[in-house]
């Protein structure tokens, strides 16, 4: 890994951290959801400070350069996150559906009662 790449990674991670903390103090993101990005940014910082870690993984997996390993690693993490987000969105949608159905049905009873009175 070149020094320039390492510096870029560190700066990007720190910016990511600051951005997330700002969003948390504005109450725009839940801490549970921010943890992923905070931990991710830390991992990037560690990888850039100790480039031996990706080099070692490269040797292990037979990848030629550490930067390739970095790409593979990040794509994998992002795919996993995307998959997880897909599940979350599905669950959210079914919850919203359930909620609206229940709300509508409950209020239907109200209207019937009012008519009876």
């Amino acid at each position: 890994m070149s020094d320039t790449l390492r510096i870029v990674l560190i700066v990007a991670s720190v910016l990511c951290l600051l951005f997330m903390l700002r969003k948390i103090s504005q109450s725009k993101v839940r801490i549970d959801d921010a943890i992923f990005w905070i931990v991710g940014a830390f991992v990037l910082v560690i990888i850039s400070i100790f480039p031996q870690i990706p080099s070692w993984c490269c040797d292990l997996l037979g990848i030629q350069t550490p930067v390739n390993f970095l790409f593979l690693f990040m794509i994998f993490i992002l795919l996993a996150k995307l998959f997880y987000m897909t599940i979350r969105v599905s669950q959210l949608e079914s919850k919203v559906k359930e909620l609206s159905q229940r709300y509508a049905l409950d209020h239907m009873d109200d209207e019937v009662k009012q008519d009876e009175e």
Binding site: L21, S25, I31, A34, I35, I38, F42
Partner: peptide, 16 residues
């Protein structure tokens, strides 16, 4: 535990 420790050490400290 991981969530709590990360939250206490790295998030709550920087919250105003």
């Amino acid at each position: 535990m991981l969530r709590m420790v990360v939250s206490i050490l790295f998030i709550q400290v920087f919250r105003s």
